[in-house]
Design a binder for these strands. Sequence first.
DNA 1: AACTAGGCT
DNA 2: GTATAAGCCTAGTTG
Length: 308
Amino acid sequence: MDWVLEHRELSKIKSTYVDALPPAINPATGRIHTSYSQIGAVTGRLSSSNPNLQNIPIRTEEGRRIRNGFIASKGNLLLSVDYSQIELRIVAHMAEDEGMLAAFRAEEDIHATTAGAIYGVSPDAVTKEMRRHAKAINFGLIYGMSAFGLTRSTDLTLAEAENFVKTYFEKFPGVKKYLDGIRKQAAQQGYVQTLLGRKRYFPALQSKQNVQIKNREEREAINAPIQGTAADIMKIAMLKIPPALKKAELSGKMLLQVHDELVLECPKDELKETARVVQETMANAYPLSIPLSTEARYGPSWGEMKTI
DNA sequence: AACTAGGCT
DNA sequence: GTATAAGCCTAGTTG
């Protein structure tokens, strides 16, 4: 790696995590206690501060080592359960797109299925590159991305990206209709809603504002119901988990929430049952027309977790 | 205080 | 003609 970039990566890790986290340990509990804000994000997500424990590194090898410092207390294990593709599942549900719903019902690899549809090939003929492109469009979809935006995150030319987006919407017409409906609703009503009814307002869309601001608000209006519904569902799950654990006579405790992931601590001999209860509660927190699948991992620390 | 860079979902 | 991917928090620099 270029030494400037390497220096940036390491200095970020040192200043934000290595230097800052140890002094954040509360001497009375021996733990770091973050603050969660319920009004920290306009979409309904939680935010975390002092310190932020929702941005602990994982992407690079050096960064991941920070996670090894988050360890279970004696006799316990950390259990991490996250929703699989929750935002795309929410899109499939709200858009009622048959193709997307079928893919999730069959628990297919959604990016591979999308690639197969766009490139018109069978699932086993999907190449890495095809899947990478499909992943980029699925990801961009959630953020209201344009064809030009797709060229920023892929090696596609603008003409290829435009063609790609066009084909995508032909193959997933429900998604196209859904997005157009959201744009229309945001412009006419001045707000959009999550599945559970929480609103986010977009004043610029109803006034004469410059195109940049309107375009930005349009993207935000597309993202808000998706990200916001995921946040709603996670919050419901978080309310249900403590009583569910209690009813099952389990002593596990929720420690952290990282948007689509919950980290718990539980006795070693309760791991399997705790995972079962947590996964079940998360999956059924707010049933959609397709299952909400979860993945569970466990380990002695947040940095070294194995699939159950 | 404003800005940039960079960590996460 | 122009800009173009959502939501956060923290550290370091600049003025």
